[in-house]
Each structure stands twice: as structure tokens, then as C-alpha cells.
Design a protein around this nucleic acid. Structure first.
Length: 465
RNA sequence: GGUGCCAUAGCCAAGCGGUAAGGCGAAGGUCUGCAAAACCUUUAUUCCCCGGUUCAAAUCCGGGUGGCACCUCCA
């Protein structure tokens, strides 16, 4: 597999540090609110990466943090007249609800910043011992100019950053580029004991502390949104490599942004959508499909039409899956005939195409086309009783591939007995050529949320509108 | 000022040196009591423009044009 490494800006063959094992850290949400569609992209992308690596036989440790202490958390708590902790508890639960609906599996570990204060303090101490950090009135800052390779990730050198000159000037700092590792407590803020007095961790240090706690000081893949490249990930490298004296991460992966009307989504512009709100109108599986329909590094434009297109595409896949189940119901124990053997070969071909695409820096758009090709082959299977072996092979392939993308999961709702009875009655009505009754029943079934179709092999019912 | 990214049909989107995947939509056909789904056919002689390299370029190089992002909290 090849992965585009933001550090080198090239696709590189993926070689894990320890054979057969992969450690991945992805920056998770700050749990001060519902997460938005833009946040959802990395969650979905890295969920797919994790699923794919597992599918290919790696033992994956996937860590995604919850940032449960920062300015926004404090602000939200004030606004709600509650504690930071209560805000965190609430929105972690809300995260889990939306994540599940998007088909995002829970990570191996979801560490929380506030539960890793000792590790954070230990790392800051190490940095101070090495002269890479200094205290100033209860704050602790990173001494950026003491870390020569600073800027290696974002491709800026220190001089250029200086030129940027939009870095805040702060009397407390030795240099405008320096960033906070520890912030002294301000009135009314939650705080923890530290060698520098009461305070809380700065912005970037939590990810360094938590990632190394669970994945070791040097691990395989670190991911996040493109905007995190600088300064967040740049600072993580400075902190971690600075403290440990060794490389931090082998592969940096950054996903592109989601735009609204070709503009960056941002709170200040008010053009953002929470996943919770979108879920009120659309099946969130369609949102997942939408995300996977383009390469993860490209920017994508979010809009109503896009979601509808994704929903239609997904429907096509869903119907193919139903079709296999339908064929299975009448399948026979016999060897595949010539056509079925060709179908099985097509399954292998689809799988190979899928793997090629995924191996190419997670090209989900191309991988999807392999699944669509397979869907077409499924629909071409005759409705005459099929070989169980061939259909099982198709099901296995189809569910493996859609499973890697996390699509079409949790959709096997039982058809209620009530609907089944109506389907039975309709079969009789059709036999009697009682079209009026037959159509009434079909409408009634539709009203209950099912689509009923007549096929040469009988009636077929599926969930849908 | 510095650093990057992108431009492919009505829409979305792969392809990144060998002669345009896939999806959505649309049109016609087949099937069907009707419908739905599905299948078949059609829907880019051409990949923003201009040069260049090459037997061969959407793909490489140079120059334009037009979008976007980062350098500040942000997925």
C-alpha cells in the first residue's frame, strides 16, 4: 500500500514499524458542541483506513482523542452555566450517537486530555530539562528556535514564519513563535496542580502526550484535517521529538476540506452544518457515501444535490445486496454453471480492483467503482434458482468490500409480520388478477416504509420510500 | 510577502505518458396487468487556454487564465 505522506509530499510505500501491526492516531473532536460535517470527514476517512488495514490483516491500534479542555470548552460551560466536565460528558455522548449513525466504529482508545495531566506534565518537564521550554509567570512555553527542524512538516522555514508576522505578540514569550505548553489558571477556570502552579495544558501538548502513551514514542500514522498541519501537528513534532530525541510519526495524513458553495465552512461565516442537523433530513449513510465518492485529499463541496446523488448511488448498492439475498433464498446445492463461474471470476476481479484502488493512497472513489461493477454483475444473474455456492461467494465478496468502506451496515431490518401478511394476500390477489386489490396492498405496504416489486421469481420487498 | 492545492460531460468524480473508469441525472428500448427495479443503447473525437518535449500528453515541462487553502482558533 502507498500512502501520501504530508511530511515528504509524496506517496510512499507503507511499511509498519512492527510487522503486522499499525498504530494510528487521529485528532478527535473538541467536545464543546455537536460536530459538523467538516469534522466528520476525517472521522470517516480514518475509520476507513483502519478498517482497510484490519481487512488486510494488520492488527491496528487506533487512537482518537477527545479534547475536553480548552478555551471553547470553558466558554461553552460558562454560556450553559455548567462545568467544563459536564459539557464534555454531554458532547462525548452526542459524538457517539452521530458517529454511530455515520458508521464510524469506536476507536481502540478514546483518551481524554483531562485524564492525562500527569503524562502531559511529565512531557513538559522533559522539554524544560532539555532547554526546549521555559516558564514565564506560571505559563510554560515551547522555545521554537531551539528546535532546528521546526517547520519541516508545513514546509515553511523559520524565517518565512517570522515574515508571516501575524503571530500574536505576547510579553510573556521570548519569541512570538513560541507556543504555550501550560497555561496558568485564570479566574474561574478549571485547573490542575503542576510544578508551575495551578493551570491547564496548552493547545498541542495533549496530542503528544496521549499518542505516545498509547502508541509509543514513535508510531506509524498520524492523521487529521489539512488545517492541523500548521501549527498543531508541527508543534506536536517539536514537542514529541524534542522530548524523546527520536522520530515521532512515520506517515502524516491530512484530509482536504469540505466547502459550502466553494467556500470554507466556518462558524464565523455561519455556513456550517452539524451532522445532527443533516441527519434530520438525510440518512447519514448517504453522507458517508458522499465523503467516499472523492479522494480524501481533495476539497469537496457539500450541498443538497451532492447528498441526494450519494443517496441514490447508495440505494443502487443496497438493492444489489438485497438481490443477492433474494437469490440466496431460492438457491440450490449444486456446482456453479458456466455463467455463475464467470460471476465468481468477476467477484475476484472486483476485489482485486478494489484492493488496487485502496492501496493507492486510499482511493475510495476508484474502489467504489469496483463495487458498482460488481453490483452490475449481481443484477445480471438470472432469476432462476442459482447455485448456493456462487451466491454465497458473491455475498462474501460484496459484504467484504462494502464492509471495508463501512457502507450498508445495520440495514437488515426484519420485515414485520404485518407486512408479510399483506405480501401474502397480494400474491393471491395477483393470482386472481384482482389488480385493484393488488395495487391497494402495494400502496399500503409503501405507506409502511417498504417498496414492493414484482419479479419473474415472485414479489420482492425492501425497506425504502 | 511566503507556502501549497485544484481546473475532466448537465452534476459528482477516477485516471497522472499509450489513445477518456464509475455514480447521479436525462433520452430511447426490453421486461411488466400497471408500477418499480434491473438490463441494453445513447449522453466528453476530448480533458481551462497557449506554447514545448515525445512515435505517443488529460497525463511531463514552460507561460497564461480562473478557483481554493495555509502562514491566526479551526477537521
Amino acid at each position: 500500500m502507498e500512502i501520501f505522506n504530508s511530511m515528504t509530499r509524496k506517496k510512499e510505500p507503507f511499511v509498519p514499524i512492527r510487522e503486522g501491526k499499525v498504530g494510528i492516531y487521529a485528532c478527535g473532536p473538541t467536545v464543546y458542541n455537536y460536530f459538523h460535517i467538516g469534522n466528520a470527514r476525517p472521522f470517516i476517512i480514518f475509520d476507513v483506513l483502519r478498517r482497510y488495514l484490519e481487512h488486510r490483516g494488520y492488527e491496528v491500534t487506533f487512537v482518537q482523542n477527545f479534547t475536553d479542555i480548552d478555551d471553547r470548552m470553558i466558554q461553552q460551560a460558562r454560556q450553559d452555566g455548567t462545568t467544563v466536565q459536564a459539557v464534555a460528558e454531554r458532547f462525548i455522548k452526542e459524538y457517539e450517537i452521530d458517529a454511530r449513525a455515520l458508521g464510524i466504529r469506536p476507536a481502540t482508545v478514546h483518551p481524554r486530555a483531562t485524564e492525562h495531566i500527569p503524562q502531559i506534565i511529565a512531557m513538559i518537564r522533559k522539554l524544560m530539562d532539555k532547554g526546549l521550554a521555559y516558564e514565564s509567570n506560571g505559563d510554560v512555553y515551547y522555545r521554537v528556535k531551539a528546535f532546528p527542524s521546526y517547520g519541516c512538516l508545513c514546509g515553511q522555514n523559520l524565517g518565512d514564519l517570522d515574515c508571516g508576522a501575524r503571530v500574536s505578540v505576547d510579553e510573556q514569550k521570548e519569541d512570538p513563535l513560541d507556543f504555550a505548553l501550560w497555561k496558568a489558571q485564570k479566574p474561574g477556570e478549571p485547573a490542575w496542580e503542576s510544578p508551575w502552579g495551578l493551570g491547564r495544558p496548552g493547545w498541542h501538548i495533549e496530542c503528544s502526550a496521549m499518542s505516545t502513551t498509547y502508541l509509543g514514542e514513535h508510531f506509524d500514522i498520524h492523521g487529521g484535517g489539512k488545517d492541523l498541519l500548521f501549527p498543531h501537528h508541527e508543534n506536536e513534532i517539536a514537542q514529541t521529538s524534542g522530548a524523546t530525541g527520536q522520530p515521532y510519526v512515520n506517515y502524516w495524513m491530512h484530509n482536504g476540506f469540505i466547502n459550502i458553495d466553494n467556500e470554507k465552512m466556518s462558524k464565523s461565516k455561519g455556513n456550517f452544518f452539524t451532522v445532527r442537523d443533516i441527519g434530520k433530513e438525510y440518512d447519514l449513510q448517504a453522507v458517508r457515501m458522499f465523503m467516499l465518492s472523492a479522494h480524501y485529499r481533495s476539497p469537496i463541496n457539500f450541498g443538497r444535490e451532492m447528498i441526494q446523488q450519494a443517496a441514490s448511488s447508495l440505494e443502487r448498492l443496497s438493492i444489489a445486496k438485497d438481490q443477492l439475498a433474494f437469490l440466496m433464498a431460492s438457491a440450490q446445492e449444486r456446482e456453479p454453471d458456466e455463467g455463475e463461474a464467470a460471476f465468481m471470476a468477476a467477484c475476484d476481479q472486483a476485489r482485486a480492483h478494489f484492493y488496487d484502488a485502496m492501496d493507492d493512497d486510499l482511493n475510495t472513489a476508484d474502489a467504489l467503482s469496483a463495487i458498482f461493477d460488481l453490483a452490475r454483475d449481481i443484477h445480471k444473474l438470472p432469476l432462476t434458482p442459482a447455485s448456493r455456492k456462487a451466491i454465497a461467494y458473491g455475498q462474501e465478496t460484496f459484504s467484504a468490500l462494502t464492509g471495508v468502506l463501512g457502507l450498508l451496515e445495520g440495514r437488515e431490518e426484519e420485515i414485520s409480520p404485518e407486512v408479510q401478511a399483506m405480501v401474502q394476500e397480494r400474491a393471491q390477489a395477483r393470482k386472481d388478477k384482482n389488480w385493484k386489490r393488488s395495487d391497494e396492498l402495494r400502496d399500503a405496504i409503501k405507506a409502511l416504509g417498504y417498496i414492493l416489486e414484482d419479479t419473474p421469481a415472485g414479489q420482492k420487498v425492501r425497506k425504502g420510500q
